[in-house]
Amino acid sequence: MTKTSSVAQNTIELIKEKAKMSRLETIRLISLAKSGHYGSSFSSSEIFATLYYHTLNYDSKNPSWKSRDRFVMGKGHSAVGVYPILADVGFFPKEDLDTYTQLGSPFGDHPDMNKIKGVDFSSGSIGHGLSVGVGMSLGARVDNEKYRTYILMGDGELQEGQVWEAAMSAGNFKLGNLVAIIDNNKVTVDGNTEELMNINPIREKWESFGWNVVDVDGHDVEELIKTFENLPAVDSEKPTAIICDTVAGKGVSFMEHGYEWHVANLGEDDIKRAIEEIEGGN
């Protein structure tokens, strides 16, 4: 891991700041909608920021560039945390975000690829994302393209049977260009994942489907960078699953670990507390 140089230190600081920005904007946008997915967006904030400010190869001035890396949110309900990043990196003006969830806005709770530049695939139906990724990875192979496809999934999403159809096919088709990122925040809508419908052990499941598996602290930017920098070659034969140990509601103490904050609407005092905590956080 010699790649963590002083330049990378700057990158780490930048990504931490951008993760903070994503959280703050999430609070602002949800206050426009009066309802939204705080907890599951905050558990992904460092993952989003690391992808868009370090890992992904894209051109925000040419969103449909054929050779770009793809990023698909299986857990499309975290889109509110990605929209501010897409604006920040130049896919569309930041002011556009002010329409979030308003009548006719391109920006809904779940992302639409035909309405929002930078969104590689529409999502919202939990369990579709990895299958989309299988198709994109096959498309890359047919075209002899070297891009990767990254799919972000929640741990609750792993309860969907289609995920395992997709995992099986990715192993079968030897899709070394496919990366599944599992935001293992351990909660779903109704409760704690393990108590509600246990999907553990996660690592062994992916391994048994023929995947290369990496465990990482999903809030440790340096670890995330190292993990993405050390992915097996695009033309290797095993897809990679990165299991990110995360905390639902990360960054706001009263939300952390609480499944109740999967979908919520903060009152004015709570918004103030949350903003203070995020701004003061590391």
């Binding site: 690829m113 299958s131 989309v132 198709g135 096959l138 498309g139 890359a140 289609q162 099986m168 096919s169």
Partner: peptide, 20 residues
């Protein structure tokens, strides 16, 4: 795709998104 129709249809959509 073997006996996995939901995955197949969704993967077809992924392929189509790459220009196929």
């Amino acid at each position: 795709f073997g006996l996995a129709e939901k995955n197949m249809v969704t993967a077809a959509a992924g392929l189509a998104s790459t220009g196929k």
